[in-house]
Simulated assay, not measured.
Amino acid sequence: MKKTGMNLIILLAVLCIFGCNKKENQPKTHPEHMENIKISDYGVTAKGDSIKKFTLTNKNGMTVEVINFGGIITSLTAPDKNGKYGDVVLGFTKPEEYFNGNPYFFGALIGRYGNRIANARFTLEGKTYDVDKNDGPNSLHGGKEGFNTKFWNIEPVKDAQFSTLKLTYTSADGEEGFPGKLTTTVFYTLTDDNALEISYEAETDKPTIVNLTQHSYFNLSGNFTKEITDHELQINGDKFLPVNENIIPVGEQKSVKGSPFDFTVSKPIGKDINADDEQLKRGKGYDHNWILNGSGLRSIAKVYHPESGRMMEVLTDEPGVQFYSGNFLDGKFDTKTGGKYQKRTGFCLETQHFPDSPNQPSFPSTELKPGEKYQSKTIYKFSVKK
């Protein structure tokens, strides 16, 4: 009996040791953040595919809604000067409007190549590739069947400090004409200081080009029938890229000083938008890429809406940002607050490498090779200025 008892004690001690070690080696979880991620049915595509919606909520009550079709952000709320949270991103009112061809890329993840590629063609390591033409002679935002039309695998990250979603998509070699099988991972994180952090990663099995971005349209007023021309914008960039008649950079890096493109000091978006300027005429407003000052993760833009008091700061480690003033919104679609999305009722600040980089050797390279990892980060941080 004594021997048996002693063996039992030893066995329990061993189990305790292994059990304790196992517990200590487990990642620290944050169940309170898992509870702030809700999953619900969103809609069904014409092909019968079921779409899920993931709702992130932080401790302040801010919410971000994401669907697994296109990694689309369908809603994002931010507080005004009275503490009231309101949706500040444009989006469709019916699920099928996302599924049946999204002409404005509302809220979508963009790839493989954000922005334009001239003549839908580029040469990489001596080989010429033709990609999908979906913008006149050019390829825009990855082609007609870009990442914004794909089903992303989405799962909550259990060991994250804040509410986080992990989105993954593998693009086949030759998809939309791009070389290499590309595996892309994107993290959406909603922090407790009212910031949406977006982290991008990608790996390939053969040389390719990559330029990922997020295409949310913002209107900080929360009223999507109002123009964004009263929003005050500051961009930390001393130069921009002039474009030709097809909105392709001509290769020049032009100073913004003394031009309508000077946002180095905050000013209303509408102040110079109708100026007699050839570049504004070509874009029908602002639809240009700014060359950002500095490097690494830094503050590159701030937008302030005086009436609501909402402020949005953009941080990124990218070399450029495409500022688009919603020039082609045309009143075809209902807004989430009634009325129609008319011209200039939303703006985009798309952090990215420069347009047409594969065809312009003087621009930062967008080439990704096997064994390398593409990494990029952008933060949209919201606050109130009274």
Rank of each mutant, 00 (worst) to 15 (best):
M1Y: 10
M1F: 10
M1C: 06
M1A: 09
A13P: 06
F18H: 06
G19T: 07
N21W: 15
E24L: 15
P31G: 06
N36T: 07
I39L: 14
T45D: 00
D49F: 06
K52E: 08
L56S: 07
K59R: 14
N60H: 11
G61Q: 07
M62V: 06
V64R: 04
V66D: 06
N68W: 08
S75H: 12
S75M: 11
L76I: 10
D80N: 05
D80F: 04
N82L: 14
K94D: 12
F106L: 11
F106K: 02
R112P: 04
A118S: 14
A118G: 13
A120D: 01
R121L: 14
F122Q: 00
T123K: 10
E125L: 08
E125Q: 14
E125F: 05
G126W: 04
G126S: 04
T128I: 07
N134F: 07
P137C: 13
G142Y: 04
E145N: 08
E145S: 09
N148I: 08
T149K: 13
E155R: 15
P156D: 13
K158I: 15
K158N: 13
Q161G: 10
F162S: 12
S163D: 09
L165C: 07
K166R: 15
Y169Q: 11
A172P: 00
E175T: 05
E176F: 01
G177H: 04
G177P: 03
K181T: 13
L182Y: 00
D192C: 12
A195H: 08
L196A: 05
L196S: 02
I198E: 07
S199W: 14
E201R: 15
Q214P: 00
S216V: 10
F218D: 00
S221A: 11
G222K: 02
N223I: 12
N223S: 10
K226S: 10
E227P: 04
T229Q: 08
T229P: 00
N236G: 12
F240V: 02
L241G: 01
V243M: 08
N244L: 06
V250R: 01
S255R: 01
G258Q: 03
F261S: 02
F263E: 03
V265K: 15
P268K: 13
P268S: 10
P268T: 10
I269W: 01
G270F: 11
D272W: 12
A275I: 10
D277A: 08
K284Q: 13
N293R: 10
S295Q: 12
A301H: 03
Y304C: 02
G309F: 14
M311F: 06
E313H: 09
L315T: 12
T316G: 04
D317M: 11
E318F: 15
Y324L: 05
S325N: 12
D330A: 03
G331D: 07
D334N: 15
D334C: 11
T335Y: 02
G338E: 07
G339V: 05
G346Y: 02
E350R: 06
E350D: 07
T351F: 09
H353E: 07
Q360H: 05
Q360E: 00
S365A: 08
L368E: 01
E372G: 04
E372H: 06
K386G: 09
